[in-house]
Write a protein that binds this DNA or RNA. Sequence first.
DNA 1: CAAGAAAATTGATGATCGTCAAATCGCCCG
DNA 2: CGGGCGATTTGACGATCATCAATTTTCTTG
Lengths: 243, 243
Amino acid sequence: MVERRRTMPGVNCFECQLRYRNEWSVLTDEEVELLGRARKCRNYRAGESIFSMGEPSHGIYCIASGTAAIRKIDAAGNPVLLHLAYAGDTLGYRGLLLGESRCSSAEALGPSKVCFIDKPTVQALLAKNPALGLQFVRRVASDLNDAHAKLVQNATLSNRTKFVHLLLVLMNRHGRTATDGSHVMELPLSRRDLASMIGARHETLSRIIGRLEEDGVARFSGRTVFVTRPSSLLHEIKPPLLD
Amino acid sequence: MVERRRTMPGVNCFECQLRYRNEWSVLTDEEVELLGRARKCRNYRAGESIFSMGEPSHGIYCIASGTAAIRKIDAAGNPVLLHLAYAGDTLGYRGLLLGESRCSSAEALGPSKVCFIDKPTVQALLAKNPALGLQFVRRVASDLNDAHAKLVQNATLSNRTKFVHLLLVLMNRHGRTATDGSHVMELPLSRRDLASMIGARHETLSRIIGRLEEDGVARFSGRTVFVTRPSSLLHEIKPPLLD
DNA sequence: CAAGAAAATTGATGATCGTCAAATCGCCCG
DNA sequence: CGGGCGATTTGACGATCATCAATTTTCTTG
């Protein structure tokens, strides 16, 4: 039974297996102890907001289980989904580094368990363990790489191609491969959110999906996606042969 | 004459006024001494490459004077201009934090003076002075904010609106305001580069510029831009009144 | 289970944009 | 100064996309 608990993130930092795969991996036992005492864990229902753009940031969040959507809203009020966060991911670290207010919103996409660590604790840990700071730098730099890659994609690709790229990324995380090589995935997002990720209207995405089905690239049923021939998906994004 | 030299960046770190406005501002005199000995300064001609995407990164660059373009090239070979860097800006810090290879290219847009600081020196400074690391974290986080803001823009705005936004940003840095309130600016970029910044073809940008002139929003002559009524530019990007 | 609300699809239409091609402009270098 | 090359502009056309509106489907909630 003790063995069972070691695989349950969100109950106890010491036994949280996730911490070996995220920024906290560099902490000593003593520091994990401190983290565990300060941490406050909470369950979120599907669709519930974890934090919202513009509000003051009093700490950071660490996802124990579930999936979270990171959104921004532009001046005209259009919501844009920037990023998906999964178990082990740390959210809201920018409030600690820059201004006081959150620069994006986070929402639980399904039932989730998320831990909160207040600012003083994080700062104490950063002061105690310089390696933790380095971990966060790497994390931000990596996020910046992702953002730049998306900017390049947006600048050059069609909506259809961007959507295929998105499908491949989501497939990595949410897909299962059957024995015959076909793939199945349960989308964690609404069409609206999918559309906002590629900078298109939901009507446009609907038509893109229709065309992908016509072309036999994938089949969509609600939030379930079937890709019978993965090669056809890859063929979509193949660049036109460099010289 | 000594007073004159204090305003000449690139000659000597101690007397470089720029360091009060960038990451190096937290260094002690002793550390600036170390930085100054290790630093290698070089002049670049217009169009010359400072570093290129994919090559190994052996250190970071600090712009003493001039303007640099940060580019990426997508899988199909299309160059995309991500960012402009100015005197005081530090380039290529990601090679120090993440992988070994440069994830973007940097090119001098005009005659420029750029200092190079090798990796061992930067690491020694980071080890000596923890505040320097924090400075870099802030810098990366700020760059990430910019990138996310651009992603949101790309997702929701038309090419015309994106271009007007770009003009306003460039005006801040390169523009001068006349006594009658009109603005003049010398663009540091070709039309092709401007187009790649908003994710459009250069032919499309050409037409957008034509339409802006028709509408009396701005006048373009080569790389010179005249904005007689700044309010008309701002009116372009005004969101449709929130309720 | 039923009613209502939200999400998703579909159609029609006009605007925007990319592509190809040709012509013109501007700049650099011999 | 003239040639040449790249940058820019312009035109024509088709493809893609946004918008508005109507409908259907799905989800939520009492």
